[in-house]
């Protein structure tokens, strides 16, 4: 099976109702504005009480209406999160704006 480097699932509106339907599993997610520009890449780690559901409920509450999201259930949430950040940086020359405010230690990736 080919390894999918980028998260390219369809966007869903970021609302408390949509977030409540999410699984309680661990994984990664992206938040975008209404035009699909990625604002933030996050992860639901081992300390999230209800995994992706908790994280996206929090995002919906903090950000209010007008944003979109997509998730990927992934037990390797941490290395996948680093990977998505590095791929974004390679594709766009910068981190998503909300990650750039407090960037984690990252390497350089030049995906083929």
């Amino acid at each position: 099976m080919a390894i999918r480097l980028r998260l390219d699932k369809p966007w869903q509106p970021l609302t408390p109702e949509q977030a409540t339907r999410l699984p309680g599993q661990l994984g990664v997610y992206q938040i975008a504005d209404a035009n699909g520009t990625v604002l933030y890449i996050g992860h639901a780690g081992g300390r999230s009480p209800f995994g992706l559901r908790s994280e996206l409920q929090r995002e919906a509450k903090d950000r209010g209406p007008g944003c979109q999201f997509r998730v990927e259930v992934n037990m390797q949430y941490r290395t996948r999160w680093f990977e998505l950040l590095m791929v974004h940086q390679a594709d766009h020359g910068a981190l998503p704006p909300d990650n750039a405010k407090n960037p984690p230690p990252l390497g350089r990736l030049s995906p083929a």
Partner: peptide, 25 residues
């Protein structure tokens, strides 16, 4: 690592999900 022609092509996810390995070209 900044030598032209050296590339870190991808992250290799393993059981060690705290830190990844990589593939180089």
């Amino acid at each position: 690592s900044d030598t032209p022609g050296f590339h870190v092509r991808r992250v290799v996810h393993t059981l060690r999900s705290s830190s990844y390995a990589t593939e180089l070209e």
